[in-house]
Design a protein around this nucleic acid. Sequence first.
DNA 1: ATCGCAGTCAAACATCCGTTTGAATCGGAC
DNA 2: GTCCGATTCAAACGGATGTTTGACTGCGAT
Lengths: 246, 246
Amino acid sequence: MTRTRSHPKPLETESSLDTRARLIDAAGEEFAEHGFAKATVRDICARAGANIAAVNYHFRDKETLYLETLRHAHRYSITHYPHDGGLHADAPASDRLRAFVRAFLAKMLDAKRPRWHGRLISREMTEPTPAFSLLLEEGVRPQFGALCAIVRELAPSIKDVQIEAGAASVIGQALHYHHCNLMMKRLYAERKDGFPFDLEFLTDHITEFSLSAFEGLERKVRMNDARQSHRRQNKQRVRESKGRNR
Amino acid sequence: MTRTRSHPKPLETESSLDTRARLIDAAGEEFAEHGFAKATVRDICARAGANIAAVNYHFRDKETLYLETLRHAHRYSITHYPHDGGLHADAPASDRLRAFVRAFLAKMLDAKRPRWHGRLISREMTEPTPAFSLLLEEGVRPQFGALCAIVRELAPSIKDVQIEAGAASVIGQALHYHHCNLMMKRLYAERKDGFPFDLEFLTDHITEFSLSAFEGLERKVRMNDARQSHRRQNKQRVRESKGRNR
DNA sequence: ATCGCAGTCAAACATCCGTTTGAATCGGAC
DNA sequence: GTCCGATTCAAACGGATGTTTGACTGCGAT
């Protein structure tokens, strides 16, 4: 028997679901804290109050446990933090941007119970595993698309590449406080006022910063277009006046 | 003898420097590609064409090798990519911002020889090791300070917290294309035009985006101040202008 | 020639870790 | 009670990996 047990996905009795759930929870914390490679099955089981063999029994192996944990985190994420932030699609684009930014930040910085969800997902970005595709197609791509739609409304005159780069700028700002959390906290460690960036402040800042940027870009493009069409009109006028004089 | 060798830092003879350097080079590639935990001493030595014991001989252990490698990458980084990008301090702030952004992006995206420097340093941010402090004090803090100075010139009326948040926004945008490189590339994988973001495009985009943002923020603050000072023209104008900054 | 020493090498050691095993335990069905 | 499947458990297996050892090599100084 090469597989240790039959693994017809064990029936979800009361107690089995219990340790299974506890395992996923413990695994989430360990994986988030140490990464896939350094997190040990022993530590996970210890934290879950389960035997070492539990991982092999309920999941097939460490990797499947990781994948299942990530799936769990992802499902939680998309149900608890919808892109629109609970805002109607016909709300003003600037409001929808703010809602998007807040939802995005909250997803990562939220102090709510399973605080490891964000860390797990961001780890996946820098060192992808087989679960990467799932995350990309069901998480990132639709979210990025929604943001692009908002940006297009905010700055309708700019090119598509610029819209996508702008969306990336918004996301980049938000992710920064996630990736470099430790760095920022240490950077502000000796300040007496501490780390001044909470969810509300960051939502405001990133939204205002980005709105200003999009307004500016839009205006520049419009001015440029106006100049060019002005030039064209001049040429045409010259031509017309030439024709009239003839 | 608990330590395997005396380790009075071996004299830098011709050949010793040779394998030592080759080890650091190989270690850089391996660490950057697989991370500290998954990179193996055997692979590093194989890549360097050295014996397994070489790591223990030239450095004390794997961790010291990593630390030394990171130091090397950091030194290279600060000598080859100065913050100012080779620009005079009295150049216009907008030009200095562009130079900063280009230097920052180049440091990470550069296709030049040791392409692993950036990856190594960014790894350090998400999972710090003892080398973290060095990186923070000699790399991040001065760089962040320089950027804040530029931002202050671009938007002299905004508060200090906003200046710092704005600087973080610039850095966040630039780092985004580094952290989420894989994600972005996969996101654009099926496009016929491929990944449209090269160094020049990104430098332009991030600079323009941020300049627009700072212009907008500055104008908003000025307008706000003007309104308020107009309203309170007769009372306390002096105290208000004192309290505006800081 | 010979001694000392830095450097290299193959082999082994010790430990950690994912996984497996086979027995023990528990709970419900008959 | 007895049987059976699901679950848990302690123990061990097997492989990978960081580290150590002790011999060997080449070279410069004495």
